[in-house]
Simulated assay, not measured.
Amino acid sequence: MEKNNFRKIATITLFESAVQWYCFLLYGTAAGTVFNKVFFSQTGNGTTALILSYMSFAIGYIAGPFGAIFFGHIGDRKGRKVTMYASLLMMGISTSIIGILPPAASAGVGVVIVLQLMRLAQCFGRGGTWGWRIPFLAAIILTLIVIRQKGEMMETEDYKKAQAKLEAEEAEGKKHKVGFIPMVKGYWKTLLLGCGTRWVDGTFYNIFIVWILSYCINWLGMPLIQTYIITIIACIFKIPFTLFGGWCAQKLGNTRTFVIGALASAVLSIPTLKVIELSKGNLAITIIGIVLGWSIAYNLIWAVISSLWSSYFETEVRYSGISFVYHVPSFLVAGMVPTICTLLINYGKGDTIYVGIYSTVVALISAACALALKARHDRGEK
């Protein structure tokens, strides 16, 4: 692949990923800070409204596995462009519609149903004050920009070769099974262990970026605007440490980098949550806690997790395999995390120790799954 073409693909892919995560992060952020008041305040109980808001966030993950199966199969058979157009448009449109929904107090329960349908569409596509609406409405503009740019991107050479081989076999009358079912039959042990590595990713993201915002507001008394500042700064720090994770992967390999990140996350989980708890709402100290627990340690995981998964699937089933590992367990390992943490923090009356124990155990399990995957791969097992 020519260097200029590689740089173009890398740039467009980066922008596409940013748009997808922009859409996804918006809902998670709003679920813990805005939606409980705008769409679920009719319950009359703050904790119940927050749990319902987080459940609307979690239920969306149910659509993820269906999107993974649907787009994964098409991606392996027809190429990535078709799935990219469909998934990006679905995410962009559904996210923008959320931005114009009226409050439940004036529109009734019907608006909650529409909200949930848009959340389902958002996840399927992905495999307070009126001001919160602006980022949601901006999603469609960003989506159209990235679709226009990525339309020029070529398929990878590996995929072209696999597609040519498939077409040649079909022309000779041979049946070559590609897609979801063959992938499950041939790689089921890899899929299970891969889902185990997904657990730390879904848990730490949803603790430190989604759930922590409602904790800061409801238990530490921080103003809403400060929670958004926390998210922005944490994501800014994420960038260099993701790049650092990529550098580590080149030197140490994907598995070692992932395991180091998972173990570091396990070690830092309880202390960083305690730092946030004991900050008593101090913005600077809270930011330090989140940067240490998420922006640094977690991003060693995030930097390598996709390449880790892709190395365990042949080209013919790679799209389906990665989609399965990421989306199928998402409801339990990611979507339910804010709700679980809300219940744990209420049980502990504001003490973060139970959330810390929960996240520590998850990180250790994911590290073990990554090591087991590497051992199977070294033995030539699928």
Rank of each mutant, 00 (worst) to 15 (best):
224 L>H: 13
34 V>K: 02
87 S>L: 02
262 A>P: 04
13 T>Y: 11
346 N>F: 02
327 H>F: 09
138 A>E: 06
153 M>W: 04
156 T>N: 10
130 W>C: 02
152 E>F: 10
12 I>L: 10
220 L>Y: 07
168 A>G: 05
312 Y>R: 15
369 C>K: 03
175 K>G: 01
314 E>F: 09
353 I>D: 05
42 Q>I: 06
366 S>P: 10
128 G>N: 12
152 E>N: 13
28 G>M: 01
338 P>V: 01
197 T>K: 01
197 T>G: 09
22 Y>R: 00
375 A>L: 09
220 L>M: 13
360 T>Q: 06
119 R>I: 09
344 L>V: 06
271 P>Y: 09
128 G>T: 13
318 R>V: 01
31 A>Q: 02
258 F>I: 03
347 Y>G: 05
288 I>T: 10
139 A>C: 09
334 A>Y: 01
79 G>W: 06
161 K>F: 10
32 G>N: 09
85 Y>F: 15
71 F>G: 01
220 L>G: 01
175 K>A: 11
165 K>L: 14
76 D>K: 05
63 A>F: 10
156 T>R: 07
242 T>M: 12
149 Q>S: 10
40 F>K: 01
134 I>F: 14
148 R>A: 13
345 I>D: 05
130 W>N: 12
74 I>F: 14
94 S>M: 10
354 Y>M: 10
369 C>Q: 07
158 D>G: 07
265 S>R: 03
190 T>M: 11
69 I>G: 01
193 L>Y: 14
181 I>Y: 14
357 I>Y: 13
43 T>C: 00
59 I>L: 15
132 W>E: 11
40 F>Q: 01
344 L>F: 15
280 K>R: 13
